[in-house]
Simulated assay, not measured.
Amino acid sequence: MTDSSPVIDLGVAPDRIDATDLLDDIEFLVARVRAIGSLSARHALEPHGLRVRSYAVLSLVCGAVSPTQRDVAEFLFLDPSQVVAVVDELQTLGYVERAQDPRDRRANIIRGTETGQAAYAKAKKSVIATRDETILKNLSQEERQSLTQLLLKVAF
Rank of each mutant, 00 (worst) to 15 (best):
G116V: 07
V57R: 01
V57D: 02
G11L: 12
A107F: 04
L136C: 03
T115C: 12
R32F: 03
P80M: 01
A155F: 07
K137G: 05
V86M: 10
D101M: 04
V57N: 00
S66G: 00
G37W: 02
Q69N: 05
P14N: 06
S54H: 09
E89G: 08
Y95R: 03
V154N: 02
P67D: 13
I110H: 06
R32H: 06
C62N: 09
S66C: 07
R105E: 11
R105F: 11
G94K: 07
T68A: 13
R42C: 01
P47N: 07
R131P: 03
V30E: 06
D24N: 15
L10A: 10
T113S: 08
L150I: 05
V72C: 05
V84S: 12
M1S: 08
D24L: 10
D18M: 03
T115I: 15
V52S: 09
K153V: 07
Y55C: 03
R16V: 11
K137Q: 15
A64I: 02
T148R: 09
V57W: 02
I128H: 14
N108F: 06
A119Y: 01
L22I: 13
A118S: 15
L45N: 02
D101G: 03
Y55L: 12
S146H: 01
S140N: 04
R51M: 06
